[in-house]
Design a protein around this nucleic acid. Structure first.
Lengths: 242, 242
DNA sequence: ACAAGTATACTTGTATACAAGTATTATAGT
DNA sequence: ACTATAATACTTGTATACAAGTATACTTGT
C-alpha cells in the first residue's frame, strides 16, 4: 500500500465524520486523483485490513461511492470506474442542467438575501487566494454553487446536487491545488466569473447568466487538464519513492 | 402494526432481492401510500423487531430511503417525509429536465433500435391493459422511460434516474391501480401519449416531443389525484378493520 | 412546587461472527 | 494432456454484541 500522502482530503473537513465517511473521502480522493487506477478491484476485507477498521464502515463507504458512480458494486468485489474525461463532462452536463433550472426559478424570486450571501462567500474566496489556500478556496467555490441551488428550496434538485457534490468537490480540490501552484493568475478570472454570476442573479438577466454559465463550462477543459497534471505529479512522486 | 395487506409491493419483483431491499420496497410503498404518515419517526430497533430481521438490513433500507428523499436521517430516529403534492411536482420537474436533455442527445443519434424496443414495450403495455394487470402496466411504463434514458449512455443522467426511479415506480404503481379500477378508459390516452413519444423519437421532431412531454406533464395532476384517492381507500379500509 | 443533577432507556456507529453462495485451484480419472 | 469433480479461499448479506452518545424520566434537595 503506497500512502504517499497520509490523506489528500483535508482532515479539517472531517471533524464530525464517521469512520465510514472518512474512508469514503479518502478512497474518493485516491480514485479521482488516479492513485487507485480505474479497473482495480476493491475488496471489503482487504480495505478493512488496510484501514484497520471493520467491514461495516467499509461497506458504508463503498455503497456511497457506488451511488456517486465512481465504483461499481458487482457480485465479486467493487470495480473502480474513476473519472475519465467523459465522466467529467457528464458531471458538468448535470451541473449546467440544474443550474439553468435553478436560475429559471430564481428570476421569479426575491434574491436580495441570496446575493448578499454569495457576495460574502466571494469575499472569502478572495481571502483564500490572498493566502494561497487552495483547499479553502475550493470549499468556498463549492459552497457558492450549493448556496445558489439550495436557495430555490427544491428537494429533488438538492438530491441531485448531493449525489454529485462529493465527486465535484474532490475534482475541484485537485484541480485547484494545481492552479494555485502553476496558474495562480488564473484565479482572478474565476473570481470575475463568479462576480458575473452574482450580477446575473441580482439583475435577473438571462443573457448574463448564460454568458456566465458558458465561462464556467468552457473552463471545464482547463480543469480536466489540471486533473491530468495532478495525476502526473502524483505518479512521478510515486516513481521517486521506489 | 396494521398490515392491512401483507405487501403492497409486487412480490414477483423481489425474486432476487436481499432482505434490505425488500424492507426498503415495503417501507417505501407504505410511506408513499400514506399508510405510514408523514412526520412519523422510524426506529431501527423497532423496525427490526417488526420485520423480524436484524438491524443490518434495516439500516441499509433506511439509507436507501434517505437517498430517495422520502425519509430524513436525524440524530435520533428517521423522520418520514413522504410525498406531498410539492414533492410529486418536484419529481416531475426532474423527469422533465432529464427527458428533455435526453431528447436533445437522441436527435443526434441513430434511434432505429431504440424505437423498435420502445414499440415492443408499448405492445406489452397494451396486453397489460387487456388483462387488467395494473402492476405489469406500471412496470412496462417505467421501463419505457428508463429505456429511453439509458439509450444515450450517460452515466450521471442514469444516476439521477436511478435515484428517482424507486419513488416514481411506487407512485405510478399506486396511481395506476386506481386508474385500472376507476378510470379504465383513461389508459388508452396514456398509450396514445406513448405512441406520440415514439414518433417524436423516430422523426426527431422537437415539436412533437414537447407536445408529448406536455401531455405527460399535464397528466401529473391526475396522478396526484389518484394517489390521494388511493390513500383515502387505504384509510377507509383501516377504519373498517377497527 | 420546582430546579438541578442523576439514572435509565434508547440511539448510532463499529466490531465480530456466521451462513450461504461463487470463483479458483487442486485432484483424480480417463 | 484434458475433462470432471472436489476442495479451498474468498465473497456477500445478515445477525449479534458492544461502546459512546443523547433524550427522557426520575429522584433529591430546597
Amino acid at each position: 500500500m503506497t500512502d504517499s500522502k497520509d490523506s489528500m482530503y483535508p482532515t479539517k473537513w472531517l471533524s464530525k465524520a464517521s469512520t465510514g465517511e472518512r474512508v469514503a473521502c479518502d478512497l474518493r480522493m485516491r480514485i479521482i486523483s488516479g492513485q487507485i487506477e480505474s479497473g482495480s478491484i476493491l475488496s471489503e476485507n482487504k480495505l478493512a485490513a488496510d484501514y484497520g477498521v471493520s467491514r461495516s464502515p467499509i461497506r458504508d463507504a463503498l455503497k456511497k461511492l457506488a451511488n456517486e458512480n465512481i465504483i461499481r458494486l458487482e457480485r465479486m468485489g467493487a470495480v473502480v470506474v474513476g473519472l475519465t474525461e467523459k465522466e467529467i463532462e457528464e458531471i458538468y452536463d448535470v451541473r449546467l442542467l440544474i443550474e439553468t433550472f435553478v436560475f429559471e426559478r430564481l428570476v421569479r424570486m426575491e434574491t436580495k438575501n441570496l446575493v448578499k450571501e454569495l457576495s460574502k462567500i466571494l469575499e472569502m474566496m478572495k481571502i483564500a487566494i490572498k493566502y494561497k489556500d487552495a483547499d479553502e478556496f475550493s470549499y468556498q467555490d463549492v459552497l457558492f454553487h450549493e448556496t445558489i441551488i439550495r436557495s430555490i428550496n427544491h428537494s429533488y434538485i438538492m438530491m441531485i446536487w448531493n449525489n454529485a457534490k462529493p465527486v465535484m468537490e474532490s475534482f475541484i480540490l485537485l484541480s485547484m491545488r494545481v492552479r494555485f501552484e502553476e496558474k495562480y493568475d488564473d484565479l482572478a478570472r474565476i473570481v470575475k466569473n463568479h462576480e458575473l454570476y452574482i450580477e446575473a442573479i441580482n439583475t435577473k438577466n438571462r443573457d448574463i447568466m448564460i454568458q456566465s454559465l458558458h465561462l464556467n463550462f468552457d473552463d471545464v477543459q482547463g480543469k480536466v487538464d489540471d486533473l491530468w497534471r495532478s495525476q502526473q505529479m502524483l505518479s512521478s512522486e510515486r516513481e521517486q519513492q521506489k
